[in-house]
């Protein structure tokens, strides 16, 4: 805590960068996960394969994935950003699929029968009712992403990981603790905020 008290602006700056990284990755990840989740809900035959593949990616150790991405993109913002987007797919797409699959089939039948186009059925009936489950997925993904994003400090990226990895290099436990505590606090806050949104 001493480090945070001594360098509040430095910690705040890195925390803000951390939030920006996670938020941007979350938005981009959702843009991919939404169609993937809808596809999984619409095609029960391919759903296990699709979600299985995303799940398999999710099990790759983050440091290993990051190493591959550094080879591809070089150091900096890009590898950690891409890693976050890829990791989030499983949690986001799975919950989109589960949320849509959980909508009362009679409502979907009525919606089609009354003349909603497939896109209107999704936007007006299915997605609004899937929303709590979808936000649940966003919550779980956000927490995981806040944690994984600290690895960005190792690959020349931004965010609170910079404190942790610089602290390791410089043998400064106070600095490591500052990064870790700030990231944990952020994860807890995100959890609480998104739990509220789920209601």
């Amino acid at each position: 805590m001493n480090y945070i008290a001594a360098h509040p602006l430095r910690v705040a700056e890195l925390a803000l960068a951390h939030v920006e990284l996670v938020a941007a990755a979350l938005v981009v990840a959702f843009a991919f996960a939404l169609p993937l989740g809808v596809l999984a809900a619409r095609r029960p035959t391919i759903a296990p394969w699709l979600l299985g593949a995303l799940g398999a990616i999710y099990t790759i150790p983050s440091l290993a994935l990051l190493a591959v991405l550094v080879e591809a993109f070089g150091l900096g913002f890009a590898p950690i950003f891409v890693a976050l987007v890829v990791y989030a797919q499983f949690m986001l797409a799975r919950n989109v699929a589960a949320g849509i699959a959980g909508v009362d089939p009679a409502q979907v039948d009525a919606a089609r029968g009354l003349g909603m186009s497939p896109a209107q059925v999704l936007a007006r009936v299915e997605f609004p009712q899937a929303l709590p489950v979808v936000i649940g997925g966003v919550r779980v993904a956000a927490i995981a992403m806040i944690s994984i994003a600290t690895l960005g400090g190792y690959v020349g990226g931004v965010g609170l990981g910079v404190l942790i990895f610089n602290g390791l290099t410089l043998h400064q436990p106070q600095m490591i603790a500052a990064g870790a505590i700030a990231a944990s606090a952020m994860a807890i806050a995100a959890d609480a905020l998104l739990r509220l949104a789920e209601r």
């Binding site: 009362d104 009679a106 409502q107 979907v108 039948d109 009525a110 919606a111 029968g113 009354l114 007006r124 009936v125 609004p128 009712q129």
Partner: peptide, 13 residues
Amino acid sequence: IGYVIQAVGLFAN
């Protein structure tokens, strides 16, 4: 064409 089903299917949202 109007459409009514046994399960009604009113949109819950």
